[in-house]
Amino acid sequence: MVVSSQRIQMRRIIAAASLFAIAGASLLSMTASVEAARITNPVAVFSGIDKITGRITTFDVYIGETVQFGALQVTPRVCYSRDDTEAPKTDTFVEVDEITLDRKIRRIFTGWMFADSPGLNAVEHPVYDVWLNSCKAKSDLPPPDSAAKQ
């Protein structure tokens, strides 16, 4: 009787280990599919507000390009989004510099911005605020290389 209960105990342990192995494999495959769904985009779309005039401007910036918004220079380094089957998660790594009154350039922000949480890492400046709207594959504006050739 003792031998039989030990065998039953051993079978339960083996069955539990098998379930953990299957669950672990499923988790790994789900993680791989989430990483595969990330899309690298060539254009980041920002919005900025001029607090003096109250005007909000939306502007496209190609990755690696620097665009000036008021006294700020915005340079996105990457812009990631997800495909249509995933929950929208759009983020960019961006550097923002300020041109001071004595014409010096001072870095005021380096980091990640998230379109679904614009207040989390938006650039807050005494006169200008800038935040990420979205990423996209194409822009109506020509890329920086083709603009220089014209």
Rank of each mutant, 00 (worst) to 15 (best):
M1Y: 11
V2I: 14
Q6N: 12
I8V: 13
Q9N: 10
M10V: 11
A15K: 03
A17C: 07
L19D: 14
A23I: 15
G24I: 06
A25N: 06
A25I: 15
L27P: 02
S29I: 14
T31G: 09
A32N: 13
A32F: 14
S33Q: 14
V34G: 05
A36E: 14
A36S: 08
A36F: 06
R38K: 09
I39D: 00
T40Q: 11
N41F: 14
P42I: 12
V43G: 00
V43T: 05
V45T: 05
T53W: 04
G54M: 08
I56E: 12
I56S: 03
T57N: 08
T57P: 04
T58K: 11
D60G: 05
D60C: 03
G64E: 07
E65R: 04
T66S: 12
F69M: 05
F69Q: 03
G70A: 06
G70I: 05
L72A: 02
V74N: 04
V74C: 00
T75G: 06
T75V: 01
T75F: 02
P76C: 06
V78A: 01
D84T: 12
T85D: 09
E86Y: 07
K89P: 06
K89R: 12
F93Q: 11
E98C: 03
I99K: 02
I99Q: 05
I105V: 15
R107Y: 02
R107Q: 15
R107C: 04
T110K: 09
G111F: 07
G111H: 07
G111C: 08
W112P: 00
M113W: 06
F114C: 02
D116C: 07
L120F: 10
E124F: 11
P126W: 01
P126T: 03
V127E: 08
V127S: 10
W131K: 02
N133G: 12
C135W: 06
K138I: 15
S139Q: 07
P142C: 09
D145H: 11
S146L: 15
S146R: 14
S146N: 13
K149G: 01
